[in-house]
Design a protein around this nucleic acid. Structure first.
Length: 792
DNA sequence: TAGCCTCGAGATCC
DNA sequence: CTCGAGGCTA
């Protein structure tokens, strides 16, 4: 054979195999016998073996083959993979609540026409992102934490539902198209697989979902290829240069089908809450006949423009919701109720159950949340209880079966002392949660704090599991997070040996000794690699009371550096969005506390440093306006309005502090307010705090980027009201843009409104703006205002 | 000041 | 996932 001939033959084989595979898998109508397919397939394989240069990425042979990997590689998603909010009400009310939320967010009138929704199934599988470049599958990744997933391209290629190449006969192919969908296992495939496992005397799998998850994360694609996985597409990630612009979600899904991607046939466009309820009921009736498991249905606002307008909250879109079906329930015995101590000392009662198989897994524990909850349900030790998996995930005790009581059941008593450290358990007035007062002196709290620190969404130290952390603390190798960075290989090996000995794990063989060394080396590397986290993750990892992921992100964005966060006065925290007195106090106290200072300094010394520090955001400046600071400084009686009034007269904290008591009395403020202000300022610590606040702000404001600062003044003091749909900006984006430039966005039009930013389908706010004679601008007008030279 | 909306915290199972 | 509580808004 000449090389030219071979190349032609390979191309022809590839095309034929693609055609057959598509006929078989997508249209379920084989055009050639399996034997013929196999024969052509093997021919192509052998050509590629002798002519590796002819092997293409989209060759059908690439579905199987390739060698086992050492570990899955992390992949950063170009567009974050969000999760979907679950509507808790499994009745029709759930759909109605979602529709009502959407209408409220869009500020629709009562009698406005119904919203159009795309309704789909919620598959019980794993979300993946498939990346096609110029129509060729180049990468498949799991969701991971939403930001970074794992590369499972080698396994995805073995899934026949997943086209290696998009078809271009109906629609143009984008340069880049990321398709999101679900990898799952059909019920019959699962049964057949288990059948085969049984025949071979190998272990059977528990449920399709976990089997699919396990298969997808196999390192060796040959194993994955033997697990029958399927795929449905339903969403998008990054899309670049596509000569086609869908206007609705339904159109987009149709486009996916036109490109040759498998799309589930059970989907529908529904009108309003009524349409959603209808779909929910229709699928409920169909559920048992489906060839795969679902755990509910998903509703999405159909119009992509409305989706943009609705925007996102922390990790979930506002325009989609999952609506599940009532969970399956089982009955079992409650053997005991134990308590656990959390990171903040919270004492939580947990039910130990006689193992029961419910909703696809064996449940042995279930949380009882707190004492009140436990009393409300009147659950006693020894009771027969009804158990379900809430939202098909979290085990939950629904109720006790009172009729089955024998009389020997015991009431649970909340301990008065911490079961771990013996400190007093206190339950604050009006709080539902009892807490161990031991603080970090309590071993449980130290362990939990470290587990939190190392967690995936915090410092993300891979391989440092809960059990090892516990042992590290128990044997005294680690006290605080900084100690992790000082661990040596020998420490880890020694710790493991002691832990194994204590837990009665069989003694290590020579071979195992080697594996342990490898394990320890990996762990040391993982710890070292975690030293340059984004600032937000580091702040979250510190475990400050009331500071979770969202608040940490906000702090990082506004303040920019760890030093700025550490040094910020209480009033500054309180002036930031979503932070009130309670959280501001918690933040300030945390950084003020000596022990925490030491921990942070030790971390810095160990080489831990945020990788993304930057100057404070321009939008910080308006938050540090004198009126804002005064309103949050904790001066009694000084309400927001009074603070503004005062700020207008003194215009800086420094000026206020420089006033003599006599001059202060001349200020135009109600006597009562003035009196409180004077008394407050007489306390030296208060005036000192105000001085410090002034100094801090002056210094920080000087470091806000110059260009941004001039821009930030652009909308200073201007109030905007948004209405309708803007052509390109989402509501959130427009708000962010205005705020970044020092403006304020308010909800309703009044005399004080400077601009009404109106898009299409603007509502009553536009009329009101006309009535009041407020300037009305559109998106282009807003952008023009930003670009125009600063006005007087 | 009440009522909504979000966020934080804790727990489960593989 | 669920609950409680903090923050914002009307």
């Amino acid at each position: 054979m000449t090389d030219l001939f071979v190349a032609d033959r390979a191309a022809w084989l590839r095309a034929e195999l693609h055609r057959y595979a598509e006929a078989y898998y997508t249209h379920d109508a084989p055009v050639v016998p399996d034997a013929e397919y196999d024969r052509l397939f093997r021919e192509l394989q052998s050509i590629e073996a002798t002519h590796p240069e002819l092997r293409t990425l989209d060759s059908p042979t690439q579905r199987v083959g390739g060698s086992a990997l050492k570990e899955l590689q992390p992949v950063r998603h170009q567009v974050a993979m969000l999760s979907i909010e679950t509507e808790t009400d499994t009745t029709a009310g759930g759909a109605e609540a979602f529709d009502a939320r959407v209408r409220r967010k869009l500020e629709l009138a009562e009698d406005a026409p119904p919203i159009e929704y795309a309704a789909e199934l919620k598959f019980d599988g794993l979300a993946v992102n498939l990346r096609y470049e110029d129509g060729v599958l180049v990468q498949a990744a799991t969701r991971g934490d939403g930001e970074v997933g794992e590369d499972v391209t080698h396994n995805a290629r073995t899934i026949r539902d997943i086209p290696l190449r998009l078809r271009d006969d109906k629609l143009p192919i984008p340069r880049v198209l990321e398709v999101r969908g679900e990898i799952y296992m059909r019920r019959d495939d699962f049964e057949r697989l288990n059948e085969r496992q049984r025949e071979r005397g190998e272990k059977t799998f528990i449920n399709p979902r976990n089997t699919a998850a396990g298969a997808l994360r196999q390192l060796d694609p040959a194993i994955s290829a033997q697990r029958p996985l399927s795929f449905f597409a339903y969403g998008s990630g990054e899309i670049l240069d596509w000569n086609f612009a869908p206007q609705t979600h339904a159109e987009f899904v149709q486009a996916l089908a036109d490109l040759g991607l498998p799309v589930c046939e059970h989907h529908s466009v529904a009108q309003g809450a009524g349409g959603l309820v209808e779909f929910h009921e229709y699928i409920a009736a169909l559920r048992d006949q489906l060839p795969f498991d679902i755990d509910g249905v998903v509703y999405k606002v159909n119009s992509l423009a409305l989706q943009r307008q609705l925007g996102f909250r922390n990790r979930e879109p506002h325009w989609a919701v999952a609506h599940k079906y009532p969970a399956q329930e089982e009955i079992t015995e409650l053997l005991d109720i134990e308590v656990q101590v959390g990171r903040t000392g919270a004492i939580t009662p947990v039910a130990r159950l006689k193992p029961v198989f419910v909703g696809g897994v064996t449940v042995t524990n279930a949380t009882l949340h707190n004492e009140d909850e436990l009393r409300r349900k009147d659950v006693r030790i020894g009771d027969w209880v009804i158990v379900r998996r809430a939202g098909d995930v979290i085990p939950e005790i629904v109720a006790a079966v009172a009729e089955r009581r024998s009389g020997s059941e015991r009431q649970f008593v909340m301990p008065t002392q911490c079961p771990v450290c013996g400190s007093h358990v206190v339950r604050e007035e009006g709080e539902a949660i009892a807490r161990c007062s031991g603080g970090l002196a309590c071993r449980a709290q130290r362990v939990q704090a470290l587990i939190h620190f190392a967690g995936r969404r915090m410092m993300d130290i891979d391989g440092l599991g809960d059990r090892y952390i516990e042992s590290l603390v128990d044997f005294g190798y680690v006290e605080s997070p900084a100690d992790l960075y000082r661990l040596k290989l020998e420490d880890l090996l020694e710790m493991k040996q002691r832990a194994d000995a204590r837990d009665g794990v069989t003694p290590e063989t020579v071979l195992n000794g080697k594996i342990a060394t490898k394990w320890a080396e990996n762990l040391i590397t993982a710890i070292a690699n975690s030293r340059r986290p984004p600032l937000a993750r580091l702040l979250f990892a510190l475990g400050i009371r009331h500071v979770g992921e969202a608040t940490a992100k906000m702090l990082a964005e506004y303040l920019g550096s760890l030093a700025n966060v550490r040094s910020a006065p209480r009033a500054v925290f309180a002036a930031l969005p979503d932070i009130g007195q309670v959280v501001a106090e918690a933040l300030f106290d945390f950084f003020d506390e000596k022990n925490n200072e030491r921990v942070i300094d030790a971390l810095l010394e160990a080489g831990v440093a945020p990788a993304d520090e930057h100057p404070p955001a321009a939008k910080l400046a308006p938050r540090l306006a004198t009126s804002e600071l005064l309103a949050h400084a904790g001066i009694p009686k000084l309400t927001e309005i009074r603070a503004k009034q005062l700020a207008a007269q003194v215009d800086s904290l420094g000026k206020l502090l420089a006033l003599t008591p006599l001059e202060r009395n001349a200020l135009d403020l109600p006597a009562e307010v003035l009196g409180e202000l004077n008394t407050w300022l007489q306390h030296e610590q208060n005036s000192a705090a105000l001085h410090a606040l002034d100094a801090w702000c002056t210094q920080i404001l000087a470091s806000v980027p110059q260009s941004d600062e001039s821009a930030s003044a652009r909308f200073a003091g201007k109030t905007f009201v948004l209405t309708g749909t803007l052509p390109t900006l989402s509501r959130d984006a427009a708000t962010a843009l205005i705020e970044a430039n020092g403006g304020k966005v308010s909800g309703s039009v009044s005399k004080k409104t400077h601009y009404v930013l109106a898009g299409s389908e603007a509502g009553s706010k536009l009329d009101k703006a006309r009535d009041l004679g407020v300037t009305i601008i559109d998106e282009a007008g807003l952008l023009a205002l930003l670009e125009a030279p600063a006005q007087a």
